[in-house]
Amino acid sequence: MPMLTLAFGVDLRYAIGSSLVSVIATSSGAASAYVKEGFSNIRVGMFLEIATSIGALTGAYLATHISTKWIAIIFGLVLLYSAVLSFRSPELGSGKTAHPNGIATALKLDSTYPTERGLESYRVQGVPLGFGLMLGAGALSGLLGIGSGAMKVLAMDRAMRLPFKVSTTTSNFMIGVTAAASAGIYFSRGYIDPGLSMPVMLGVLTGSFAGSKLLARAQVRTLRIVFGLVILLMAGEMIYNGVAGKI
């Protein structure tokens, strides 16, 4: 999405619309594989989708009312944050905390996931905090037309103590619904342009297919650093353009 506005000079609102379309496409495409492998926790996903959908509707509503200048600045800040995240190594693990959590048990969120040693069970913690963070993730997603997967993973990984693989795949599972919640609003406001969304959607699908093949052979460290630098650059330009009123 910043690529569209910065490199090709597409209006921010069209870019948001097309970006949402590509987010739904990749999320649904990838989720189809992850769900089958049994990593995603459908109950956790379904429950938290209440939060992300409310957030997304709010965000999309806001996006149609505030100036693109502010959207650009917020977007820049979010990019900056994900650049910082990509330079840091992920903290693996968590998950197997022994104490059952009252709310999580009442909501039947605890589950199992496949590991090399067979099915392992985990208990979910920090449900209210996770739910709150998901409201925020949904709002950002609706406002900026992104999947805000990083924030979803943060909520499930850090706050709810889900195993890393469960967090990432469940996040992916939820992204489609979150994006669909705001896409409806963008759609009826005329932010989704067929001529622009068509190449973006088809390109992203082809890219993600090729990417998943490449990823198996790529050096994760190098990948993260290149990715981080690109995002850092975009963040700087986005904030500059927003402040200077060029968007």
Binding site: G29, A31, S32, V35, M198, M201
Partner: peptide, 25 residues
């Protein structure tokens, strides 16, 4: 079974949508 159903369903939806977009495109 349920996870397989959802997985297949999502995949079919994306393929269908992409095909329609491709033809329209």
């Amino acid at each position: 079974q349920f996870e397989n159903l959802i997985g297949n369903f999502l995949r079919a939806g994306v393929i269908l949508a992409a095909s329609i977009v491709l033809i329209g495109g």
